[in-house]
Design a protein around this nucleic acid. Structure first.
Length: 489
RNA sequence: GGCGCGGUGGCGAAGGGGCUAACGCCGCGGUCUGCAAAACCGCUAUCCGCCGGUUCAAAUCCGGCCCGCGCCUCCA
């Protein structure tokens, strides 16, 4: 099966084939940088990061562009409150954005264009739209004229007449039509402004994405993503602007993620129900947060509650335990290359080893099948757990015969390439900041405990284990020695 | 009002005309272990919001109803 994705534009799952063979161009709307990002902002971040990773796994080269809206009414307001220049506020939250994204193991996009650095491009685009008759100037403002673009509404499936009948659209004093939207906003006193043919002002919200996407990805590119709340008006407007400019279809696939909800209600900044990502990351491991975000299909709503993250923590431990056991078994079997310890030249692999290898291969293709079906990460995770179960069974039996290392390596490659490479579940998070002091001390205590155990001094051994547990250090005695880990990141 | 999405075990969540209704968490019983933990095995929905219909066959398709949510205004 080949990759199929649900395209909001057509309302169906379609086979995904990039316009240029082997090369995918994708654009995802980034944050307006006036605050730390919240969990709702983190969903598209992780979902599209994982999709990008999967495209690369499938052998595509991906040009991934994510913008920063660093000029905006809210930034200006925030700057006023703090008595700082708007650009300083925006720059600060861009830095903070990267701290959050890195902590979540989100890979960097190829490019992060900022509105403030594309004012010239935007002015040219606006000017072009006016020349082509799609936009008009009022006193210092420029508006896009929706009625000049007949396909308007094709993405959100609504007809302009009906929207106007809704009548709740505010009629700006100088808009000709309530649905028209600003391409250029005249500056009021004290606001940051750039010179333009229409006087000092700043770009409207929607034009930046059209302009920057066209600039870096060309007139027609493969994937445009974002939250479902951007379908209207933001993405609808992007299409109108871009297609009015180029006369060519803008993005071919429109992908939209569902919302994070709290008690089933949308998490948003206007309601008081949002949780900052960094607050969540203070309490839960980044791997657990990713597991939580990818455990539900990306188009479905996803409810937030502590207990769901706690559940993800435990599920993550299952994966991490399997990964650790696998590494130990692999080391014991002579390493990934097959080693020369347990696998003499020409020896027939044991049937258990052959069976595991075969199962792992089959499960890998099941995972690929799930991801190929509209990027169903929830289903893919289900298969990953099946793989973990079979792997644990094999490792528990302490298999040692010929072919064991190869079989284990096969499993490791799936965990590496899909679990970590695509879903990003195993690495990431804060680095040890103590220079290995904790690890050193734990190892020291463990060696004392091992001495006690050799003497069958169970009281001392158990005492050490209990005290370490109180400190959040979990011990497990395994056939290969003691394994320890920290509870929670 | 217009447009749209969803209701699956104690919880989360896949599936979406015919296979035992995945998987995770929790709970219970067992195996292993010095003990513990981890892991593994077993049990936990005769049933998929309700009522009709189509069909040899429906949780999956169609209609109606009930409930929850979203977009239509800044929002990922």
């Amino acid at each position: 099966m080949s990759l199929h994705l649900f395209n909001t534009l057509t309302g169906t799952k379609e086979e995904f084939v990039p316009a240029e063979p082997g090369f995918v161009r994708m654009y995802v709307c980034g944050p307006t940088t006036y605050n730390y990002i919240h969990l709702g902002n983190a969903r598209p971040l992780v979902v599209f990061d994982a999709l990008r990773r999967y495209l690369e796994y499938r052998g595509y080269e991906v040009l991934y562009v994510q913008n920063f809206t660093d000029i905006d009414d809210k930034i200006i307001q925030r700057a006023r409150e703090e008595g700082l220049p708007a650009q300083d506020v925006a720059a600060r939250y861009i830095r903070e954005f990267f701290l959050d994204a890195d902590a979540l193991n989100v890979r960097r996009a190829s490019l992060y264009p900022r509105v403030s650095r594309h004012i010239g491009d935007i002015i040219r685009a606006v000017d072009d739209l006016i020349r082509r008759g799609y936009a008009y100037v009022t006193e210092g403002d420029v508006y896009f004229s929706v009625e000049k673009f007949p396909p308007y509404g094709k993405l959100s499936r609504r007809r302009p007449e009906e929207m106007m009948a809704g009548a709740r659209v505010e009629v700006g004093e100088d808009k000709r039509n309530p649905l028209d939207f600003a391409l250029w906003k005249k500056a009021r006193p004290g606001e940051p402004a750039w010179d333009s043919p229409w006087g000092p002002g700043r770009p409207g919200w929607h034009i930046e994405c059209s302009t920057m996407a066209l600039k870096y990805l060309g007139p027609s590119f493969d994937i445009h993503g974002g939250g479902a709340d951007l379908i209207f008006p933001h993405h609808e407007n992007e299409i109108a602007q871009a297609e009015a400019l180029t006369g060519r279809p803008f993005a071919r696939f429109w992908l939209h993620n569902g919302f994070i909800t709290v008690n089933k209600e949308k998490m948003s900044k206007s309601k008081d129900n949002f949780f900052l990502l960094r607050e969540v990351l203070r309490r839960f491991r980044p791997q657990a947060v990713r597991l939580y975000l990818l455990g539900t299909h990306y188009r479905s709503p996803l409810d937030f509650a502590d207990e769901y993250l706690e559940e993800a923590e435990r599920a993550y431990e299952r994966l991490a335990n399997a990964r650790a056991a696998l590494d130990e078994a692999l080391a014991a079997a002579g390493g990934r290359e097959g080693g020369d310890t347990g696998n003499p030249e020409g020896a027939e692999a044991t049937s258990a080893a052959l069976e595991l290898t075969e199962r792992v291969r089959s499960l890998r293709s099941k995972i690929e099948g799930a991801l190929d079906d509209d990027f169903n990460t929830a289903q893919a995770l289900g298969v990953l757990y099946e793989l973990v179960r079979e792997l644990n069974t094999f490792v528990n039996r302490g298999e040692k015969g010929p072919g064991t290392a190869e079989a284990l390596a096969e499993a490791a490659s799936v965990l590496d390439e899909l679990g970590e490479g695509v879903l990003g579940l195993f690495s990431g998070g804060k680095q040890e900041e103590d220079g290995g002091l904790v690890a050193g001390l734990v190892e020291l205590i463990l060696s004392l405990r091992q001495d006690a155990r050799r003497r069958k001094d169970w009281a001392t051994a158990d005492y050490l284990r209990d005290r370490l547990k109180e400190l959040g250090i979990i011990l497990e005695d395994t056939p290969h020695g003691v394994r320890w880990r920290l509870r929670r990141g």
